[in-house]
Design a protein around this nucleic acid. Structure first.
Lengths: 151, 151
DNA sequence: GTCAAATAGTTTGATGTTCAAACAATATTT
DNA sequence: AAATATTGTTTGAACATCAAACTATTTGAC
């Protein structure tokens, strides 16, 4: 049992590191060399469709609002994000992707989908069901753990 | 099928973010407030047992040797890591954890093991087997993808 | 055996990431 | 209207990261 735990743990750690490294390298090879992996995840969190406020995106990313402001400054300068002051509440800033931002979003999304597709394709219907279940368990545990932490 | 992909992908991303956030917060609440999550992973890569050279650890972490040197400077200053010049080759630096470094290593390792244990405990023997298989597939895909990237 | 080339690690300058705390602008409450 | 709360920005400090220049040492060629 202990061995199984180490094995699963090892795969998870390795998968995390690989995904980060591959994403980083893929970006550097693309037409989006000026975007870091952190900035990519900020673009991902801003998302394609609805507009989101600075606070919402910061919370989603788990960083302070100040951190996000700095990062968004850079993304605006580089032409990936637009800032729009809310009409109804002038304190609020809505973040939205530019055309170029949306292009990058889709590229990144495709990488993620391909990655998962490859895995699932090699499994049967039933197996992928079980994988999902395992991931769901893990996710549930983490959400419960998060609850217990102070803000 | 497409829906399954999105679902698995969503769990992976979420798990990824949660693990990082929880690790970070747990550190900040512990007696090891002066260690960042990146430094924690450096400590993890240096490891408990054998000594490892600067180059080996840098490769494992996927950073340049220069980056690791800077980081190790901080970890030595804070008392988590020792530098030892190799006797047989005076150019080589062996990195090893201090007593305090090993204490932190074990704490971090326990978090990881508990996380996985929780997940596996809720599954039967057979299911955890399938989860492993899924993770193995994903890992294999990522390793193959990595191969194809230029250094 | 000596000199050139290779290897291991360090230092430095530039840019990015992150937080906490001080701040400014606006909205809400009293 | 004044006090308080909320939203976001700015700033200073510490860490993260790379590339490139550098130092020390070892290995290889002659």
């Amino acid at each position: 049992m202990d061995q199984r735990i180490d094995e699963v743990n090892g795969y998870l750690v390795s998968i995390f590191n690989d995904v980060l490294m591959i994403e980083e390298r893929t970006l550097q090879m693309s037409q989006f060399k000026d975007v870091s992996i952190k900035e990519m995840h900020t673009i991902d969190a801003i998302g394609m469709y609805q507009e989101h406020t600075t606070s919402e995106v910061a919370k989603k990313l788990g960083v302070t609002v100040g951190t996000l402001t700095v990062s968004v400054n850079n993304l605006v300068r580089k032409g990936y994000v637009n800032r729009v002051r809310s009409e109804t509440d002038r304190r609020v800033v809505q973040l939205a992707l530019t055309k170029r931002g949306r292009l990058l979003y889709r590229l990144h999304d495709k990488f993620h989908r391909d990655m998962v597709k490859e895995t699932i394709n090699e499994m049967g219907e039933k197996e992928s069901e079980v994988l999902m279940h395992g991931l769901k368990n893990l996710h549930g545990f983490l959400e419960r753990t998060k609850e217990q932490l102070p803000d």
